[in-house]
Nucleic acid binder design. Structure first.
Ligand code: SF4
Ligand code: SF4
Lengths: 145, 145
DNA sequence: GTAATAAAAGACTCTTTTATCTTAAATTAA
DNA sequence: TTAATTTAAGATAAAAGAGTCTTTTATTAC
């Protein structure tokens, strides 16, 4: 598993928000309904994104969360860092502690290359590219009775 | 996180075993002592590897676990598949269910390439290359009082 | 000001993973 | 055969992740 479930929810939510203009507040309730994610759980996740300046939020009527900047400038990297931290991009496959730059093992450089490809993908993939797909897969009208 | 903690323990153990001749039984107790891994927990993990024909085991005096084949032919891929399953090699970064070949999203192909690099690395890295490193990092004589 | 709305915050439950402890079964040595 | 050794198996517990529920705080509409 590359990212946590929380992180997956965060990515889906921001991809969802990319369908709205930047700065347009959308209630978290709407997101949780449309994406079938627990409302209160999602609230906590999106709080991490507001704390990291990916989203902005507003309480009260007409409030919600909104993209803090242009959707095309928000990458998977930003979201993963905000929710899961940097382990995916800096961590060792072997999960050995205190390892890496100093006393690298014989395969470290190759591992760094492989991990770098994932890193590159995340840095160059913006949430806008996932918008349609997230909506499609969350569309529960297809499997309704 | 790429692999589970259990998987990390399994990889370290087989790298450790690669210091012994193939077929030579080593007590799990020795492995757990030298690598600082809980004995009973490690036992369960190594059972997964014997079930997957990576290791063989023998009970009783003089028994233990041993490499079922040449260490140089045991790759990270083998161990990850045996312990964590194939999610690392087949799963989606977004953890979206029912996704992939049919109705792929715009970034699927690029993701497939990035994931493929990790896959390639795991398939072409044998545990023998990690032997020294695993011993070095588990060496608690360095931090003894 | 009052009521309605919606995020923020905290307490709590459930599940999975990780870890520990106990008992059973198999193998070897004497 | 008896004792010692060592994996296998099962029960239990602790920790982390995921999800639910309630209360508080801020904002808007009236
Ligand atoms: S040196 Fe080896 S074990 Fe350490 S972080 Fe690099 S690849 Fe991992
Ligand atoms: S199509 Fe997109 S969301 Fe689906 S598995 Fe591929 S990269 Fe992931």
């Amino acid at each position: 598993m590359f990212v946590s479930k929380s992180c997956s929810y965060g990515i889906r939510s921001v991809a969802y928000l990319s369908g709205y203009p930047q700065g347009k507040y959308v209630p978290i309730r709407d997101i949780s309904n449309d994406l079938n994610i627990s409302y209160h759980f999602l609230t906590k996740i999106l709080q991490m994104l507001t704390a990291n300046n990916v989203l902005i939020s507003s309480r009260g009527a007409g409030g919600g969360v909104a993209l803090a900047r242009e959707a095309s400038s928000i990458t998977l990297y930003d979201l993963i860092i905000a929710i899961d931290g940097d382990e995916l991009f800096t961590g060792c496959l072997l999960r050995l502690p205190g390892c890496g730059t100093k006393t690298p093992c014989p395969v470290h450089q190759e591992w760094d290359v492989a991990r770098g490809k994932v890193n590159h993908f995340c840095c160059h993939t913006s949430v806008t590219e996932l918008h349609q797909h997230v909506l499609l897969l969350s569309d529960n009208t297809l499997s309704a009775p």
